[in-house]
Design a protein around this nucleic acid. Structure first.
Lengths: 234, 234
DNA sequence: AGGTTACGTCAACACCGTTGACACAAGGAT
DNA sequence: ATCCTTGTGTCAACGGTGTTGACGTAACCT
């Protein structure tokens, strides 16, 4: 399932492209990353990737079976980046939260990829390292094997799920985003108290729903785990 | 922001299409729903929608500004469907969990739409009703206004985030899904104990990560809220 | 020096969303 | 009953997309 199955990991014939660049899987992933960073995920296309590389778009298919395969490679790089410099602090719960936030941030940075990184098993080093770290924290907290796996799964998927969601916001043009927020205020700010009693009561606090809920969701998850571990230890 | 701004809500000139169908915004949303259900979200295109309707694809643009607009209309219908028949049981925490699962299921049914339903403010009746219900449960539990809004936000976004994530799995062809799962077993099942100690220890339980983590995530969230409410009440 | 072949290039295919021009029938007005 | 306006379905077209197969050439191995 890795691209090395499809293509020999080491290349012998390195032939420069017409513009002089010598291609490689790594270089292509680099370019894809930059492209997404600079132009937004929406702007990522094989053809633009080719242009950015100074090569024919179809050259990409010598290195990756298709675009999904390429995004898969990108995913593992992301995981690696997000884990760089991470060191356990000793508070396993805080570390888990940090792990989740790291996953969230890196996934959000390249929204297109967020979905793939959990759906597909990259099975590559970075992914394995991250899973090992997270599960290790939960084992250290005293959970049994099955529960550790389950809780890790819940935490990471929640972080990545929020990333997938929040990515949608970033895709909107700023102008539209602003217009949407105003529409929100108008729609929800003045609802009849008799039909929507709860909404009416909390109307002043509705702007709280504007941002992302990751942090709060992770806080709640970690709190529940902490409590569970404490009870387990009694 | 609703489509009625763009197009008069009531149409006078109802002209049948060449195949005899009389179009309407509702009918188009119907067809889009069926199309996604039958062929998968990936298969949804304006052109196929036109074919399914027995009309020229471009006729859709008389009713919706663009595809995003159409998906927005679909989103509110989904929210409505998901809330149909919901009645509070008296246990606010269980009800909240149920609310989250309903959001998850309906979003997952039409993955393409999942993202839009939270990103954009539909501001339509169904959405408002759902928010009012959820916030109401939290107020009833004794949370203050701001906390109720925050917790509702976390819960719903988590449910929808997982839906967005899990939607990716459904998009894979069954054969590929199976191949992926096997690759998973192979990659993770036999890792060196010295390099990946935690992974090695839990290796028998890794298949737990195959399915969705929604239920476990929601369980944890609700447990944390329940605990918080209990402490608040003391 | 020669043969193999990996790999960059090119052209083409079948799609996609969206738009502008156009024709025509539905409905209101007379 | 007739005319006019106009809403709306149709058509053709544009510029984009991912992907593929044929092709030639340059890079490596012997």
């Amino acid at each position: 399932m890795t691209e090395s199955e499809r293509v020999p990991a080491e290349r012998k014939r390195r032939r420069p492209t017409s513009s002089g660049v010598v291609l490689s899987a790594d270089l292509i992933v680099d370019a894809a990353c930059e492209l997404i960073d600079a132009q937004g995920a929406q702007a990522f296309t094989v053809r633009k990737l080719g242009a950015a590389l100074g090569a024919d778009p179809s050259a990409v298919y010598r290195y990756f079976r298709n675009t999904e395969d390429l995004l898969l490679a990108l995913a593992d790089r992301l995981i690696g980046e997000s884990m760089a410099g991470f060191g356990p602090s000793g508070d396993w719960a805080a570390d888990l939260r940090e792990l989740g936030m790291r996953a969230y941030r890196s996934a959000l940075r390249h929204p297109q990829i967020a979905v793939f990184s959990t759906v597909r098993v990259t099975g590559r080093p970075h992914e394995q390292r991250a899973v090992d770290t997270g599960v290790g924290l939960l084992l250290q907290a005293g959970f049994d094997e099955a529960t550790a796996v389950r809780h890790y799964h819940a935490l990471v998927d929640t972080a990545l799920g929020h990333a997938a969601l929040d990515a949608g916001v970033l895709r909107l043009a700023p102008a539209q985003r602003a217009a949407d927020e105003q529409a929100w205020q108008a729609q929800y700010g003045s609802l009849p108290a008799d039909e929507y009693p709860s909404l009416h009561r909390v109307r002043e606090h509705l702007p709280l729903m504007a941002g992302s809920a990751v942090e709060r969701a992770l806080d709640l998850l970690v709190a529940a785990m902490r409590r569970e571990a404490a009870e387990r230890g009694e």
